[in-house]
Simulated scan of single mutants.
Amino acid sequence: MITSLRSPDTPDVGAVLRRWRDRRGVSQLELASRAGSSARHISFIETGRARPSHTLLMKLAEHLDMPLRDRNSLLVSAGFAPQFPETPLDDPSMKTLSGELERLLAVHDPNPALVHDSHYRIVEANRSLLALISGAAPHLLEPPINTMRLTLHPEGLAPAIRNLAQWRTHLLGQMERQIALSGSAAIAELYREVAAYPVPDGGPSAPVSGNAYALPLWIDWRGRQLSFVSMLATFNTPLDVTVSELAIETFLPSDPETAAALREMTGEVRPPEPGPGSR
């Protein structure tokens, strides 16, 4: 029977659906209209008076923009098998992806770049990023390195960040949005931890200029002030839970001085610009 796939502590599908609908602020009528169903049927599912089909659950999950991990949980709560695999990156089937991620990060050198998962744990990092964080306390550099702890901990990068107040607000706001969208208890616990870190007193400070095109990260590094803007990239239409939770973050220099410092840090010398008559 279908219900044999559910364990005794698996939440009821109706409760799971209602929780996600409430989280997205969508009425039963609106959700039903999007999924080609009826408000009555959605109501019956939520109250346990009707059992949804696999096809309908997949439609509902899509229109509620549920992460793949939670779509699997929704299916299991209804007695179905998970739809999306969760494959470790060190699995042989992921060899091509892992290799391409390593090459992608290497190409970003001398700009710092990393890959992290949905819990902000670093999966891969290039040599520039590792050099940038090398001064943090050893306990913060033990794998898996958590970027939120590393950045906001008083023994991490926080004392060196010149605009810590602005960057801290940005990172905490990012986590708040993720908690609101996913309801992740793990992220909520991480948020409470890092939000409680003491903010270093008397450290360097710098306001964000009015003409900044993105929030910069100003950081003191080995006697130099470096300025970065960060960029995030994720996979389009992932079909694996692991892949769906990966994000590539690149730190681009926001001024010529930072670009020059990064090239010097990695020993890279840019060739001279070609002259007017060069090909």
Rank of each mutant, 00 (worst) to 15 (best):
N236L: 13
A195Q: 14
L217C: 13
I187K: 06
A247S: 15
M231N: 15
S93G: 06
M66L: 10
T47D: 07
V199L: 03
P67C: 01
L141G: 06
A160E: 12
D255M: 07
S134Q: 03
R192I: 02
R177D: 07
L239S: 13
R270T: 11
H170G: 04
L129A: 14
T3W: 08
V107K: 10
V243L: 07
A260T: 07
L130F: 05
E86K: 12
G183Y: 09
V194P: 02
W221Y: 14
P154M: 02
V26M: 07
P67T: 00
L252I: 10
S254H: 12
L60M: 11
A137K: 02
H119A: 11
R69P: 11
A212M: 10
G135M: 12
S244R: 08
G135F: 11
E273F: 12
G79R: 01
L217P: 08
F235N: 03
A32I: 01
H116A: 12
M175I: 11
R21C: 02
L104I: 13
E245M: 06
M94Q: 13
A106W: 05
M175R: 02
H108W: 12
N163R: 08
S77H: 00
E155R: 12
E30F: 09
G203R: 10
D255R: 06
V194K: 01
S128T: 08
S73V: 04
L105V: 00
D201W: 07
W221H: 15
E193L: 04
S53D: 00
P92L: 04
G79M: 01
G25T: 00
L141V: 08
G210H: 11
S118I: 09
T237Q: 15
S205Q: 14
L97P: 00
T10I: 07
R121D: 15
A15N: 08
Y213G: 14
L217I: 12
R69G: 09
L157M: 09
D12K: 14
E46F: 00
A180N: 13
A165R: 14
V241F: 04
Q166M: 07
